[in-house]
């Protein structure tokens, strides 16, 4: 896996991102603090079915819940207007997990938070968003482990 540095990120974001230098600076800051998040370019599918190559931060964030720390899998998509629009955020359950829908999570795993709803650069940023997620998920986890009693290995 290539080492992700600022110049590498700038190349990945090419000219598509209107505020590339701001975006790169934020990503660099966040991945230095949250080392289990990785910047990736991938195809994002919009509601109308169109797709676009967008940058995401994909990986896990450490969430403390009832005295244990869990690595909650998330994917934060950055639009090409970032940071002037909020990221589109999802939990990404593994096959061993199921989504717990609620005030902050829909059945697709999409994350809804006042922090995203009220997003305003430069007061809002990825680092602040992740801190909010960690607090909110620590009270109400977005995923739980699936029961293992019906494992096919026992069939």
């Amino acid at each position: 896996m290539a080492v992700v540095n600022e110049s590498g990120l700038k190349k990945m974001l090419s000219k598509q991102y209107k505020y590339r230098d701001l975006t790169v600076r934020e990503i660099t800051n966040v991945i230095s603090q949250y080392k289990d998040l990785k910047p990736l370019m991938d195809a994002y599918v919009f509601n109308d079915g169109s797709t676009r190559e967008l940058m995401s931060l994909t990986g896990t964030v450490p969430v403390s819940y009832r005295g244990n720390v869990y690595n909650i899998p998330v994917c934060l998509w950055l639009l090409d207007t970032y940071p002037y629009n909020p990221p589109i955020c999802f939990v990404k359950p593994t096959s061993a997990m199921m989504i717990k829908t609620g005030k902050h999570i829909d059945a697709n795993g999409k994350i809804y938070l006042p922090y995203l709803h009220e997003w305003k650069h430069p007061q809002s940023d990825l680092y602040g968003l992740i801190q909010v997620m960690i607090v909110v998920f620590g009270e109400e986890p977005p995923v739980f482990s699936r029961p293992t009693t019906q494992s096919p290995f026992q069939a």
């Binding site: 009832r66 244990n68 869990y70 690595n71 909650i72 990404k92 986890p141 739980f144 482990s145």
Partner: peptide, 14 residues
Amino acid sequence: LNGGAVPSAPPTYT
């Protein structure tokens, strides 16, 4: 090489 942390979740919600 850093593959990142293994995803984990709290025990089954009941």
